[in-house]
Design a binder for these strands. Sequence first.
RNA 1: GUGGCCGUAGCUCAUCAGGUAGAGCACCGGAUUGUGACUCCGGAGGUGGCGGGUUCGAGACCCGUCGGCCACCCCA
Length: 429
Amino acid sequence: MTTIKAIRGMNDILPEHTPYWQRLESTVSGLLASYGYGEIRLPIVEHTELFKRSIGEVTDIVEKEMYSFDDRNGESLTLRPEGTAGCVRAAIQQGLLSVPQRMWYAGPMFRYERPQKGRQRQFHQIGVEAFGTATPDIDAELILLTARLWRLLGIDQHVTLELNSIGSSQARADYRAALVTWLSERREQLDEDSQRRLESNPLRILDSKNPDTQALLDNAPNLADFLDEESVADFARVCDLLDACGVSYTINRRLVRGLDYYNKTVFEWVTSELGAQGTVCAGGRYDGLVEQLGGKATPGIGFAMGVERLVLLIEAVGAQAPAPERADVYVVAVGDNAHRTALAAIEALRTALPELRVIQHVGGGSFKSQLKKADKSGAAVALIVGEDEAAAGVAGLKPLRGQGEQTQVALGDLAENVSNIVMQDITAT
RNA sequence: GUGGCCGUAGCUCAUCAGGUAGAGCACCGGAUUGUGACUCCGGAGGUGGCGGGUUCGAGACCCGUCGGCCACCCCA
């Protein structure tokens, strides 16, 4: 019998890690609510066409990374590789664009890539999108929101903000043409990857990791020189607002984004703590996307954070270590009658103290073995019921952590006694 | 898709010039009648990723394959 294993790059997130996820998620949703963003829940599967039209036909994501398959009726569907496309689709379809919208979503994304640190085939993003605002104040708002989030998560000392403007689509196209012309004359000086990108996605050559390529680019046409007036002014305003709020950033004139729909402001939050996949949050403006997907022309801007990467970072820098999950009370009951009596009393206890974490021992066993389990569980106290206690209507309460002796209490007074002892025990340790 | 390293008990790892496997932790039981932790004793658990090959004999050598990690690519 061969055991069935998870699909490569699609990982289980185990109980020892989920507390980090939960804390991240609750921090994010609280913060977003405070900025007036509402959660939208989107399908994981969309028409393949949606991604081709938004992300771009010639991007790596669309060309070789999508999980696509034919539905029973022959339509091509795709597990979403990112969230913006679906969010825009929903905004158009549901008529959400008549007024400015602030929305966020969270969930799994899928890309067929080779797994490595900080990159898997099923990964999770939290995305934030704002529609209907053309002015750069919304750009600044989104960035300020992320900066605040890093502070709340305790990782603000470990991430830096890179900022750029890639201009209007026209400016981008003009620059692209100039860059291609210039680089084509020096084609032999480019590494193999960049030669390929010259055809497929020339702007990506700008953030090549090859030092020789970077040196060559020092003399190449500069994107900043091609920007239209409005992009220049808006970018200056974004910087000005960030300055006013004390958010520091690096202007990286070679920062472009991989997805075709971006224009004007683009940004990335990066860390050096995670190896090669250091981008923890990234986004930008996409003023043409809504129209491109068939909606009324509406400006938009958004970003996405990689949840796995953020969790890795939080764990790596020791920030926000969640308290270990431990029980308050572990119920030891030996004998059928004792178990029956204890269970009824515990149910009443749960009603009286709904927050109390009570583990009822199951599976039988001796007093000794049950007490061992009680100890292992990390519980503050063991609640012990044997045949004698059951007959007398009492239970033993044995502190497992602090000092304190075992006491005997009436089953009817459990709630009061338990809460006292648990509190005592916790403060003692 | 490309490259490097790796794949032995649940976990972390060891062994050996090639002669059919061990430790620590974890788990289970016991050390006077119904009481955890520490200690002691005992136990269970591995067709050594899978498939071929070389050999009298391979976990150890060779090939293939699958999987893992990291990097390239790409991206959150």
